[in-house]
Amino acid sequence: MIELDGVAKFFGPTVAVENVSLNVAAGDFCVLLGPSGCGKSTVLRMVNAMIAPDRGRIVIGGVDIATLDPIKLRRGVGYCIQSVGLFPHWTVERNIAAVPRLLGWSRPRIAARMAEVVAAMQIDKALLPRYPRELSGGQQQRIGVARALAADPDIILMDEPFAALDPISRAALQDEMRRLHEVSGKTFLFVTHDINEALRLATRIVVMNKGRVAQAGTPADILMRPVDEFVRGFLGRDELPLRLLDLVEIRDRIAPLSHRPSTTAIGGNATLRAALNMMLDHHVSRLAVADETGRIVGEIGLADIVAGGAPQ
């Protein structure tokens, strides 16, 4: 869906991006991860034709974007940055409708699409006539995401959208993004410096350092086989085994029910980390595991978590 081939960008004598090649498949949630100044935002902005690469090619849907009108290209992909990007003199409703209006959609078409987006992002309708400054940071960012979705683009680009939020709003919006990705099948390219955010969201992670791709792969790949000291350090060296727990669901480690089942139960789709948390919280070493309907289907013990093994 998005292909970068040997892309480089220099700002004067400084190398911002050097020889980056990437292939983001349709439906991927690709996270560009790295410290500030590693070039990840520059890559995103090049994909949106806001910066022209000095070398290399960027191809979207089979078309070299250098041959496209940049303004048309940008209207065709969703773009979302930190909450400051809302237009302060426009109501929430007008902010969300910005791109459809630019595209010249008819009023009824905009109204119909607005209703869909507002429902999908679970935006309180009472907020629509309000101005951005009257909203909390979390609400503003929700509007920012809605604006990126408004014209129903196949590709959504997000540049550290949740970096300025409090942990609760951030977690809520991350869940929202996961759900959105699952139900929409859209392709996401998402920039962050937050490893936890990357692990929560990504189907593919591209770790960047000093303008180059340090490692690209699935979250499990990268966690289990970091290629070098930089990647290992960035992932949080000592906590690597703990982070792996985030990637495995309880149902993958489920054991048959023993004769004296635990009274504390957890859902099978929760992660091993959640199970470990609950064990620590309740001072137990075994938990009953429930399916979606709440029926107890098995159990998981501390040993099952520690046993390890690669996640699928």
């Binding site: 902005r45 949106n48 806001m50 303004i71 048309k72 290209l73 940008r74 209207r75 065709g76 773009y79 940055i81 930190q82 400051v84 990007g85 809302l86 237009f87 302060p88 003199h89 910005a98 791109v99 630019l102 920012g144 604006r147 990126a148 680009l157």
Partner: peptide, 27 residues
Amino acid sequence: VPSGVRDAAQGVGFAPGIMLLEIELPL
């Protein structure tokens, strides 16, 4: 005009003239 607003306007596909009339001058 906040740089974030300018960046977002450019990023979602405002042409420079429309951006001036609809975003920058009103602000």
